[in-house]
């Protein structure tokens, strides 16, 4: 039964991984007679790509931006779906809950182009807010073009887009908590907050830890489209993240080897982070991504 899944994994994940060898080549896709030949015939340059990458200050700018955004969103985005799930869970009316859920899920299905356009139309210099402010005799400020507050802007966009979606997992975890516990606690005189603290949050903890570890593994990926779309508005200094760096410096100049090197770097850092976070989780008595044998 697992065979199709294994084949899928092999063909679309493990085999392509071999392509990472171009990180150590001056890869030229056009030598030889076919793509495989190109791998074999491209010149081997050892760590030349990595050296070029690590010598490039633009690369470190991108790494710094990416990590700042990850850290910022860990604090200001990650807890919000939990909060939303708790609030939704406490809504008694099923119809109201269904309605609110649908409304907050919906933006998840919008593409980034749409989300960014929506923000521009609402908060941009020719947008709704700016026009209202002008009517009222106020001078609108550059919400969409301020590099200093860009991190807040992208987080706000991400929250608007994915808050509801992120809450689904937590809602599922909430529904798995034994209702008897609440009744017993209430019978013993535990108030709303005590029940939240002693029953709900401990019940959610394994899921929270799991998602946190997975998010850490993705620390060097914060998205691509969102940043490339807004790059000109705030400039490279604020909007260059690792993925856009790879796009501009490797893909669009066809330095495939350099791009692969950056990708490999991302993967290795992600793996190290996941393993570390998992270890810490084990120390704290959590299950983590996989349990200790």
């Amino acid at each position: 039964m697992a065979a199709p899944a294994a084949v899928l994994l092999l063909v679309f994940h493990y085999l392509p991984t071999l392509g990472n060898i171009i990180a150590f080549q001056d890869y030229n896709p056009f030598v030889g007679d076919d793509p495989l030949d190109a791998f074999l015939n491209s010149e081997w340059i050892g760590f030349g790509n990595f050296e070029a990458l690590f010598r490039d200050p633009l690369f470190w700018d991108a790494v710094r931006n990416t990590l700042s955004i990850t850290a910022f969103q860990l604090v200001f985005f990650f807890p919000l779906p939990i909060l939303l799930a708790l609030i939704l869970n406490s809504v008694v009316s099923g119809r109201l809950r269904g309605f609110v859920q649908s409304v907050v899920y919906l933006p998840h299905f919008f593409s980034w182009v749409l989300v960014v356009t929506f923000f521009v139309q609402m908060f941009g210099g020719a947008g709704l807010l700016a026009q209202e402010m002008r009517q009222a005799g106020l001078e609108p400020w550059g919400i969409m073009t301020n590099p200093d507050t860009f991190i807040v802007l992208v987080t706000a966009e991400a929250v608007w887009k994915d808050l509801g979606w992120g809450a689904i997992v937590f809602l599922a975890a909430l529904s798995a908590i034994d209702q008897n516990l609440y009744e017993a606690a209430a019978a013993d005189g535990a108030g709303r907050w005590r029940r939240l603290w002693h029953i709900t949050l401990p019940g959610l903890r394994p899921v929270i830890v799991l998602l946190l570890i997975m998010r850490l593994g993705d620390a060097l990926s914060v998205g691509f489209e969102q940043f490339i779309l807004q790059r000109e508005a705030v400039g490279r200094q604020a909007a260059e993240v690792l993925d856009t760096f790879v796009y501009y410096q490797a893909i669009s100049t066809q330095q495939w080897g350099l791009g692969a090197a950056a990708g490999l770097f991302k993967a290795v850092v992600g793996l190290v982070l996941i393993l570390t976070a998992n270890k810490i989780a084990h120390r704290l008595g959590e299950q983590g991504v996989y349990s200790k044998s």
Binding site: D26, I45, G46, A52, Q255
Partner: peptide
């Protein structure tokens, strides 16, 4: 084989 053969790409 890699040792010492690091070179600039492009």
């Amino acid at each position: 084989a890699l040792a010492g053969c690091s070179k600039e790409a492009g």
